[in-house]
Lab assay of single mutants.
Amino acid sequence: SIEEEIKKAEEAKEKGKTFIHGDFVATTEELLDELLKRLRKKL
């Protein structure tokens, strides 16, 4: 679910890890923020 993806992305951000969502690879905090923004729009 979208909620689960958001939670996983937030955890990755806290730990400074890379998060992959489909073909979107978030390797930096900026990219994770962008991904979180996109996911929240889908809610």
Rank of each mutant, 00 (worst) to 15 (best):
K15Q: 12
I20M: 07
L31D: 14
K15S: 11
K42V: 12
E30K: 11
K7L: 10
E4P: 03
K37M: 06
E30F: 08
E30V: 07
L43D: 02
E4Q: 09
L32Q: 00
T18R: 11
E34S: 00
I6S: 04
K37H: 09
E34C: 03
R40A: 08
S1A: 10
T27C: 15
R38K: 11
G16A: 00
E3T: 08
R40C: 12
R38I: 15
K8P: 01
A26Y: 14
V25W: 11
K13F: 07
E30T: 08
I20L: 07
K42G: 08
F24N: 02
F19N: 14
L43V: 05
S1T: 11
L43Y: 02
E3W: 14
K41W: 00
G16K: 13
E29D: 10
A26P: 03
T27G: 11
T18F: 10
L36Y: 00
K15R: 10
T27D: 15
L31A: 12
E4K: 07
E29N: 10
L35V: 04
D33G: 00
I20F: 05
L36Q: 01
E30D: 10
E10I: 10
T27N: 15
D23C: 13
H21Y: 15
K41R: 10
H21T: 11
D23Y: 06
D23P: 00
K41T: 11
H21L: 09
K15A: 12
K13V: 04
K37R: 12
K42F: 09
G22N: 07
K42I: 15
H21K: 06
E14D: 08
A9D: 02
D33K: 08
E30R: 08
L31H: 10
F19V: 15
L35D: 03
E11N: 06
L32D: 01
T28K: 00
I6Q: 03
V25M: 09
T27H: 12
D33A: 04
D23E: 09
E14R: 14
K17F: 15
F24H: 06
E34R: 01
A12W: 02
E29G: 12
L43R: 08
D23W: 11
V25P: 04
L35K: 00
V25F: 11
A26R: 00
K42Y: 11
L32R: 00
R38A: 14
F19A: 14
L39Q: 00
R38L: 15
T28A: 07
D23T: 05
T18D: 15
E11H: 06
E30S: 08
E14F: 07
E14Y: 05
L36I: 15
I6V: 06
R40D: 08
G16H: 11
K8E: 05
I20R: 00
R38S: 09
L39K: 00
E14L: 13
L31W: 07
R38V: 12
R38Q: 14
L36A: 01
L31M: 14
E5V: 15
K42D: 13
K41I: 11
G22C: 15
T28N: 10
E4Y: 04
E34G: 01
D33W: 05
E4V: 07
E3M: 13
T27V: 09
R40Y: 13
H21F: 13
S1Y: 12
A26F: 10
K37E: 15
E4A: 12
K8A: 11
E3Y: 11
E29I: 15
R40K: 09
L31S: 06
K17Y: 13
E10N: 07
D33Q: 02
I2V: 08
L31K: 04
L35W: 05
I2R: 07
K15P: 04
E30H: 09
F24S: 02
R40P: 01
L35T: 01
E4I: 08
V25L: 09
L36D: 04
I20K: 03
I20W: 10
T18S: 13
K42R: 11
E3A: 11
K15M: 13
V25S: 06
E11R: 07
A9H: 02
E30L: 08
K37Q: 13
L43Q: 07
K42W: 13
K41S: 11
S1M: 09
I2K: 05
T27S: 14
L36P: 00
E34L: 09
A12Q: 03
T18P: 13
K7D: 02
A12E: 03
E4F: 04
E10S: 05
L35F: 05
H21G: 06
T18L: 08
E10R: 07
K42Q: 14
E34A: 03
K13N: 02
K17P: 14
D23M: 04
F19E: 13
E29L: 12
E3C: 15
K41G: 11
E29K: 13
K42L: 15
A26V: 07
G16S: 05
E14V: 10
I2P: 03
K37Y: 00
I20Q: 12
L39E: 01
K7P: 02
E14C: 15
K7A: 11
K7V: 06
G22M: 10
R38Y: 14
L36T: 00
E11G: 03
L32F: 14
K15L: 13
R40E: 08
A12F: 02
D23Q: 06
L31I: 06
F19Q: 14
E4S: 09
K8F: 04
I20T: 10
L32E: 00
L39M: 08
K15H: 11
E3S: 09
D33T: 03
E5G: 07
H21W: 14
S1N: 10
L43T: 04
G22D: 11
F24W: 11
E4L: 09
E11Y: 06
R38T: 10
F24K: 00
T18N: 13
K17M: 14
E4T: 07
T18I: 15
L43E: 02
T27Y: 14
E11D: 12
L32T: 01
H21Q: 11
E10V: 10
T27E: 13
E30G: 07
G22A: 06
E29T: 13
K41L: 09
L43F: 02
E3D: 08
K17T: 12
L32Y: 12
K8I: 05
K42P: 01
F24D: 04
E11T: 07
E11I: 08
A26K: 01
K15T: 12
K7S: 06
A9S: 04
L43M: 06
K37V: 10
A9L: 12
F19H: 15
F24G: 04
E11M: 07
F24L: 07
E10P: 02
K37I: 10
A9R: 04
I2D: 03
E10L: 13
L39N: 02
V25H: 10
R38W: 13
G16T: 03
T27P: 02
G22I: 12
T28G: 07
D33N: 09
A9P: 01
A26H: 01
L36F: 00
T28V: 08
G22Y: 08
V25G: 02
K15V: 04
G22Q: 05
L32W: 07
I2N: 03
E29M: 13
I2M: 07
L36R: 01
I20C: 15
G22V: 08
L39G: 01
L35Y: 06
S1D: 11
K15C: 15
I6G: 02
E14G: 10
S1Q: 09
K15I: 05
R40H: 11
T27M: 08
E11Q: 08
K42N: 08
A12G: 00
H21E: 13
G22R: 00
T28C: 15
I6M: 05
T18W: 14
I20P: 14
K8T: 04
K7I: 07
L31F: 06
E10Y: 05
E14M: 11
K17H: 13
E5P: 03
S1P: 07
L43W: 02
L43G: 01
L36K: 01
A12K: 01
K8S: 06
T27Q: 06
D33C: 15
L43C: 04
I2Y: 10
D23L: 05
K37C: 13
K13I: 04
G22F: 07
D33P: 00
L43P: 01
E34I: 08
A9N: 02
K13L: 09
K41A: 14
F24C: 14
E29F: 09
K17V: 12
E14W: 06
E5T: 15
T28F: 11
G22T: 03
E10T: 09
L35R: 01
E29R: 13
G16F: 06
K8H: 05
L32H: 00
E34P: 01
L39D: 00
T27F: 13
A9G: 03
A26S: 06
T28E: 03
I6N: 01
F19Y: 12
K15Y: 07
F19M: 14
L39Y: 00
D23S: 08
V25E: 10
I20N: 05
A26Q: 03
L36S: 01
K37F: 00
E34M: 05
A9K: 04
T18A: 13
V25I: 13
H21A: 06
G16Y: 06
K7W: 05
E5D: 10
K8W: 07
K17W: 12
K7Y: 04
L35S: 00
K37A: 14
A12L: 02
L43N: 03
I6K: 03
L35G: 00
K41Y: 00
L43A: 04
